[in-house]
């Protein structure tokens, strides 16, 4: 299979940062072809999890290696081109739910569709259906500050799914939630690994990671272990 056919693939990926006079290798020689399903990325603080996510999602450019998202070489693309690839093929759920505070739940979910140029009626219909899917249809007109943490995170998941992405990135999605709300969000996320879709779940919680199809363990910027979940 060529790189162009791969949904999410990294080859010899590396990232170096300069901190004062010192160069730090945040990620070194990471190679992995993400298969369909849920892949958890685990490791202690400073192991390179967030750096890896930034590179896989095209938030940042690698210092070395290649990364392909939906067959597009993110490492060779400019900022706006990478944004275009993200919009079309990736969805994001962050630890702090990051809804746009001046938009209602419905408008937040519809925001990627707005960027894509989908007409208002169509995007509202789609956003409402997604909110129903995450169990928040009745909260569509509420603003983020009127929603609980768990509800905000579910709205964020609905937003991430708005354009039916091939890859869903989740960075510590339950980190700020109580266990009941966290469980509901996690079930919702894990349930999204359907068809060709890949779910990349960055977490430091091994119990959560155990529910993924496979676990990648990072240490000091290196991929040290790949194993299927028990």
């Amino acid at each position: 299979m060529s790189e162009g056919d791969r949904v999410l693939y990294a080859a010899h990926l590396g990232k170096r940062y300069r901190q004062g006079e010192v160069w730090i290798d945040a990620l070194r020689d990471f190679t992995f072809d993400f298969p369909p399903g849920v892949t958890a990325v685990v490791g202690p603080s400073g192991s390179g999890k967030t750096t890896l996510l930034n590179l896989l999602a095209g938030f940042d450019r690698p210092s070395a290696g290649e990364v392909y998202l939906a067959g597009r070489p993110l490492h060779a693309l400019g900022e706006d081109e990478r944004a275009g690839v993200r919009l079309a093929h990736a969805g994001f759920v962050f630890q702090s739910w990051n809804l746009l505070p001046t938009l209602s739940a419905l408008e937040n979910v519809a925001f990627p569709l707005l960027l894509k140029g989908v007409p208002r009626r169509e995007r509202n219909q789609r956003a409402r259906a997604l909110l129903d899917e995450v169990g928040l249809g009745h909260r569509a007109s509420h603003f983020p500050h009127q929603l609980s943490g768990g509800e905000q995170q579910r709205v964020a998941i609905a937003r991430a799914l708005a354009l039916d992405p091939l890859v869903l990135f989740a960075d510590e999605p339950t980190g700020n939630l109580d266990s009941a709300a966290g469980e509901r969000v996690l079930e919702l996320l894990l349930g999204q690994a359907r068809g060709r879709r890949r779910v990349v779940l960055v977490t430091h919680d091994l119990e959560i990671a155990a529910r993924a199809h496979r676990i990648l363990r990072l240490k000091d910027g290196r991929l040290v272990e790949v194993r299927a979940s028990p």
Partner: peptide
């Protein structure tokens, strides 16, 4: 800045 960061992460171009 956070909001703009989220917009960019979702896929908003600079021009937007």
């Amino acid at each position: 800045i956070r909001e703009f960061g989220v917009m960019r992460a979702i896929g908003a171009r600079r021009g937007f």
